[in-house]
């Protein structure tokens, strides 16, 4: 289980999702996934830079629509008014960012573990206090509140070292990214930053690598359904 550190992730965000992210049409949950992947993936980050530049070029080509004649004067007046209303100096830190020790999140595995910053704003508590919920043997999850897209779930998922998710397929699309550790399923090995998009055509049983817990961020637009013999019995109890 070699980890290709210098190359960045091997399994990328589909380019159509990068386009949606750059154009601003991707829902917040999947946009979070793109932002987290991009933090760990120089290749997709460069594609996003190209796409932003494309947006800029298209903006320049956009047919202009006149504003009110006094629009600029109005704006300057607003700037003057705001400046005059003695603004209290803003503190340097940005809201939503927690400055806790993230290494405490996963006791096992890589001691240098950190979570991509876009994710931090969505954690309900400090990472070491996260209210993990049991979701089958060896599997713990937390639902995150991300965006307003109806029917979309964003889940932080932790699979114990060497433990397996139950065999399952998907009623919709499951987009999953490894944050720490790694897992293996029918389609290969996945390491931090790697993305797997699964639909109803995929029936898999992800197993965390033996060398530590596997932490993943998943976005689902429909429930999964368990397909193994034991799984079918568990279906009513495992809420995915």
């Amino acid at each position: 289980m070699e980890h290709h550190e210098t190359m960045g992730p091997q399994h990328h965000m589909p380019e159509a999702w990068l386009v949606d992210y750059a154009a601003g049409t991707l829902d917040e949950a999947n946009a979070l996934l793109v932002a987290c992947h991009a933090a760990l993936c120089p290749t997709c980050r460069e594609t996003l830079r190209l796409l932003d530049a494309t947006g800029g070029a298209l903006l320049e080509d956009q047919a202009p629509v006149a504003l009110a004649d006094d629009a600029l004067a109005t704006l300057f007046a607003r700037i003057d008014a705001e400046d005059a209303a003695a603004e209290p100096a803003r503190p340097g830190h940005r809201p939503g960012h927690q400055t806790v020790d993230l290494d405490a999140l996963l006791p096992a595995g890589d001691g240098t573990l950190r979570l991509p910053r876009p994710l931090l704003a969505y954690l309900p508590t400090a990472p070491q206090d996260l209210p993990w919920r049991w979701n089958g043997p060896g599997v713990h999850v937390i639902d995150l509140a991300v965006g307003r897209h109806p029917g979309t779930r964003t889940v932080l998922m932790k699979i114990g070292a060497g433990r397996a998710m139950p065999q399952h397929t998907h009623k919709g699309t499951e987009a999953l990214m490894v944050l720490a550790g790694g897992y293996r399923d029918e389609s290969g090995d996945f390491f931090p930053g790697d993305v797997a998009i699964s639909t109803g055509e995929v029936d898999h049983r992800p197993i965390a690598h033996d060398d530590g817990e596997c932490l993943c961020l998943a976005v689902l637009d429909a429930p999964i359904s368990l397909t193994g013999t034991v799984g079918r019995l568990l279906n009513p109890f495992i809420r995915f």
Binding site: G24, D27, E28, A31, L32, V34, A35, C36, A38, A39, R45, L48, R117, P118, L119, A121, G147, R148, H149
Partner: peptide, 9 residues
């Protein structure tokens, strides 16, 4: 959409 945009930093 009244949604936020998770940004790469």
């Amino acid at each position: 959409r009244r949604e936020k945009r998770p940004e790469i930093e």
